[in-house]
Amino acid sequence: MNMTIAWITARGLFGRKRFLLLLPMPIILIGVTAVGLAFDAPAADLAETVLLGLGVATVLPLVSLIVGTGVLGSEIDDGTVVHILAKPIPRGRIIMAKLAVAASVSAVATAVPMFAAGAMIGGTRLGAGFALACVAGALAYSALFLALSVLTRRPVLLGLLYVVIWEGLISNLVAGTRTVSVQHYVIRFAAELSGSEWFRTTVSTAVAAVMTAVVTVAGTWLAARRLRSFSVAGETS
């Protein structure tokens, strides 16, 4: 991994206003958990509503989308990516550095509040299970959204469509589509690692593990391949 690119990427990410959008989400997650516990909501209901509905289905994909499309997409939009591309660095190494930053930031921003919320609801094993599942999910989502930011001009829109329409709607109605839903891989990992009976998905642990690896590797490979043929359009002259 190229540390200079990772350093520039992290500085750029933390310096953008878009990054501030990440702050309220973990706070909301922990706040809603605290409110639910204060009103004696049943742990199973709270786990489903907060950990799955809010954490896995909303906070994790949204944080990953904001960060994953921001690490390279913003540089492509404003043209600064040329400074990195006009260097003798294999494109795969550029993508790996971007992915490392995106996945790390998304993982920390989601795993920490998920651990806190899970521990508050059902103990540290539940919290740790969700935190580790979010780390795996952050990696797969980041690779997916990073690839979208190089392959398309509308990565945020397409990412939102994937999260809201595909994962939020279709994969909950049609069981067969869950094998291509990162959300269901995360649910399977969380269920497995926490040992909890509260969470169910039709995706097996083996499929979830293989598909997480496939999404991560395919996203990284596609992004690197596209970046090798990155063109700058002639604008005015």
């Binding site: 404003d78 043209g79 600064t80 400074h83 006009a86 260097k87 660095i89 294999p90 494109r91 700058v232």
Partner: peptide, 16 residues
């Protein structure tokens, strides 16, 4: 990309 060892570029877009 190896060509950039010999090549320096200042392009038209002023983004830094």
């Amino acid at each position: 990309p190896a060509i950039y060892r010999k090549l320096g570029l200042v392009n038209e877009r002023e983004a830094v």
